[in-house]
C-alpha cells in the first residue's frame, strides 16, 4: 500500500514505474499487493526511482 501511495504521489502509472525499474507491470502490481517478494536490488531501484528510502516503502510496523 505504501508503494502504491508513493507511486501515485510521484504521478507514475504501474507501467511507467515498471519500465523505469526494468520490471513488468504484473510484477509491480504483485509487489504492491504484497504477493511477490522482490529482490533487494529491485527494492533499491524502486526506492531510488520514487525518491524514497527502503523503510518508507517496505518497512511494516508491528501493528500492521
Amino acid at each position: 500500500m505504501k508503494l502504491k501511495l508513493a507511486r501515485v504521489e510521484k504521478g507514475l502509472s504501474q507501467q511507467q514505474l515498471a519500465e523505469l525499474v526494468g520490471a513488468t507491470r504484473q510484477t509491480l502490481g504483485l509487489i504492491e499487493k504484497g504477493k511477490y517478494n522482490p529482490s533487494l536490488n529491485l527494492c533499491i531501484k524502486i526506492a531510488k526511482t520514487l525518491d524514497k528510502t527502503l523503510n518508507d516503502l517496505f518497512w511494516e510496523d508491528d501493528e500492521n
Binding site: 515498471a18 526494468g22 520490471a23 513488468t24 504484473q26 510484477t27 504483485l30 511477490y36 522482490p38 529482490s39 536490488n41 529491485l42
Partner: peptide, 8 residues
C-alpha cells in the same frame, strides 16, 4: 532478454 524481469 525477452523482456523478462526477476519474477519471470
Amino acid at each position: 532478454f525477452l523482456n523478462m524481469d526477476e519474477r519471470n
